[in-house]
């Protein structure tokens, strides 16, 4: 499961942010997961619980999902991505590397593969709240 690799990235990034901000303890981390990648929030939560560092012992991880929205560069059409329209292998490929959507997805209006992924890809840290600044 590559959710573990993403969770490792989150823990590593939060550790760095906490160090930079001088937090003794990280209270809350808000994460946003893109729907395009179909990352399993439960696996991420489980992986975070296993990987968390001392500073994150009591951290509340909040995970929200973001709709996968595309905008065609050719005709300007915007649309939402629907996984059920694609075969399992395609969904799985997009799960690993969201950009391969350009290989499989076409604009429903003009058929172009030239579109922007407006939102709903990847995993992002929205905010990190910590307490007890080191002096």
């Amino acid at each position: 499961m590559h959710e573990w690799a993403l969770a490792e990235a989150v823990v590593s990034a939060v550790s760095r942010i906490a160090d930079n901000e001088g937090f003794k303890e990280v209270v809350e981390v808000k994460l946003k997961i893109g729907e395009l990648q179909q990352v399993e929030a439960e696996i991420i939560e489980f992986a975070l619980a296993q990987l968390r560092t001392e500073k994150m012992a009591n951290t509340k991880f909040t995970i929200s999902t973001e709709k996968a929205q595309f905008k065609c560069r050719n005709c300007g059409n915007t649309w939402l991505f629907q996984h059920k329209e694609f075969a399992d292998e395609v969904s799985e490929a997009i799960h690993f590397i969201p950009e391969v959507a350009h290989t499989y997805v076409r604009c429903p209006r003009c058929g172009s593969p030239d579109f922007d992924i407006l939102g709903g890809r990847g995993i992002y840290i929205e905010s990190v709240v910590g307490v007890g600044k080191d002096v």
């Binding site: 690799a5 993403l6 490792e8 990235a9 989150v10 590593s12 990034a13 939060v14 760095r16 942010i17 946003k32 990847g122 995993i123 992002y124 840290i125 929205e126 990190v128």
Partner: peptide, 9 residues
């Protein structure tokens, strides 16, 4: 918004 991937490379 912070992209955590950069940190793990």
């Amino acid at each position: 918004m912070y992209d955590p991937r950069v940190q793990v490379i």
